[in-house]
Amino acid sequence: MEKEILLFVTSIMGSLGFSIIFNIKGIKILIASLGGGISYSIFLISMYSSDNLTLSIVLASVTAATLAEIFARICKTPVTILLVPMLIPLIPGGELYYAMNYIIFGDLLNFNMKIQLVVREMGAIAGGIITVSFLAQFITKLKNYIKQSAF
């Protein structure tokens, strides 16, 4: 459990640092960094119960995107601003680095393994975000439609 708490805290700190680097201001920093921690803990919980990497990343990215969509509407700000720092803990930066390192040293076998992992993880993140954004658009359109037909 101690290890999980450490991961949770460091993921929040990572998101916080990137929020500052990306010039995000005010209360949005708090939302973005806490969101990063929450989505990463969803990833950890899902990894524990299912041990399925792709599924866990999709769930975590769906969580981040949902939080971003909700708070973007509350703060009247574009969704990306909150979403980008929240995704930081999920990004397989380390794996991407290992993959490039392997190919430079000509170790194609390990490169293949790592790059597949990177593509799978990044695809899962992108897929999660897009699913949520389509859903959000659909709900907005449905709301407008209901409003219009009421009059």
């Binding site: 460091t10 700190m13 990572g14 916080l16 640092g17 500052i20 010039n23 803990p89």
Partner: peptide
């Protein structure tokens, strides 16, 4: 639009680097 001062940015860099080393 103003950006964070160089000092704050540097702190953010240090924060990210140290937390991700522990994180990984």
């Amino acid at each position: 639009t103003s950006r964070y001062s160089e000092k704050t940015l540097l702190l953010a860099y240090l924060l990210v680097a140290s937390s991700f080393a522990v994180f990984s």
